[in-house]
């Protein structure tokens, strides 16, 4: 008898949980549209993308073409609303002189309301190896792989991920963390309220940051690193730090370094530190200028 009562109670409990789960969920209509295009690329032609709410994936291929695929996605509980909102999502592609220009935008007709659906755009782009790429994005994600010529990113609220990128790279980001693995060449980054995490770095890295957590690891012997940061936490995993020549200019900074790393102080005050390490040697340079924050140098 007791077992029966227990089973009935268990059944009610499971039913209750099931009902709760169903109440929290809704059925969403997903309407999406895919567009593909490819154009011939000529030497010197650059690719420029101006995107909004987009996940951008860009890489190179062996062909002399710029090829891209755009997927527009609209999600809403009501299918007709999702369909109508999808139609408001427009794109334009044109080649003017030596610029291949691609952008997406929302177009509203007279008396038409803003999209109610959740909307998203996904780009998959392939360019030739010697094609300069210029990407602008507002919200979303930017993933770049194997670009070795010229890259320029200007983004807000966009997460940036770089894999095997070299050549000339310029990034300007606000509220968009950067993570990179395998970057070299000349890299210039301006960041505001964005964290930066770089692994396997070579070449010249010029970093200007405000409110950031910066981590640099697996640093190549041939580097020139300049960090100019405000209100930031900087961590340099240098490995064998004797390979480098450090120049530190710190104000209101808590510094942590390996015990064996003996600095030459030109100024060592409570609020301000100016120090060098291996400065007389002909080593790759790491210069850190930091105002408020922490600096950690690790092996």
């Amino acid at each position: 008898m007791q077992k029966h009562i227990y089973n009935i109670l268990l059944l009610f409990l499971v039913q209750g949980l099931g009902c709760n789960a169903l109440q929290a969920q809704v059925k969403v209509q997903v309407v999406s549209q895919k567009i593909s295009k490819s154009v011939d690329w000529k030497q010197g032609m650059t690719f420029q993308l101006v995107a909004e709410r987009a996940d951008v994936f860009c890489t190179t291929h062996q062909l002399s073409t710029i090829a891209f695929e755009i997927v527009f996605i609209a999600k809403h509980e009501n299918k007709s609303v999702a369909e109508a909102d999808l139609k408001k999502m427009k794109w334009v592609f044109e080649v003017i002189n030596k610029k291949a220009f691609l952008r997406n935008y929302i177009e509203l007709a007279r008396n038409e309301s803003k999209p109610e659906s959740d909307i998203k755009v996904v780009y998959h782009i392939k360019v030739p190896e010697n094609c300069a790429v210029n990407i602008k994005n507002y919200f979303g994600k930017i993933e770049i792989e194997n670009l070795n010529y010229k890259l320029n990113i200007d983004s807000e609220f966009s997460i940036i991920n770089l894999q095997n990128v070299s050549g000339n790279t310029t990034i300007s980001t606000t509220f968009g963390d950067i993570s990179a693995n395998g970057i070299s060449g000349d890299i210039h980054i301006e960041s505001n309220r964005s964290d930066i995490d770089i692994h396997n770095v070579a070449g010249n890295l010029d970093l200007h940051s405000n409110l950031a957590e910066i981590v640099l690891c697996e640093i190549d012997n041939n580097v020139g690193i300049t960090i100019d940061a405000e209100k930031s936490k900087v961590k340099i995993r240098a490995g064998d730090y004797n390979r480098f020549s450090f120049n530190l200019n710190l104000t209101n900074v808590e510094m942590n370094k390996p015990d064996g790393m003996l600095l030459d102080f030109t100024k060592n005050e409570k609020e301000s530190i100016k120090a060098g390490f291996n400065t007389s040697e002909d080593h790759s340079k790491i210069d850190v200028k930091l105002n408020i924050g922490t600096l950690t140098i690790e092996k």
Partner: peptide
């Protein structure tokens, strides 16, 4: 009117 091509539909159960 390429805008009307390659449109696909699906449904998802999601948590609000």
């Amino acid at each position: 009117n390429t805008d009307n091509r390659n449109i696909s539909y699906s449904e998802e159960w999601v948590e609000l």
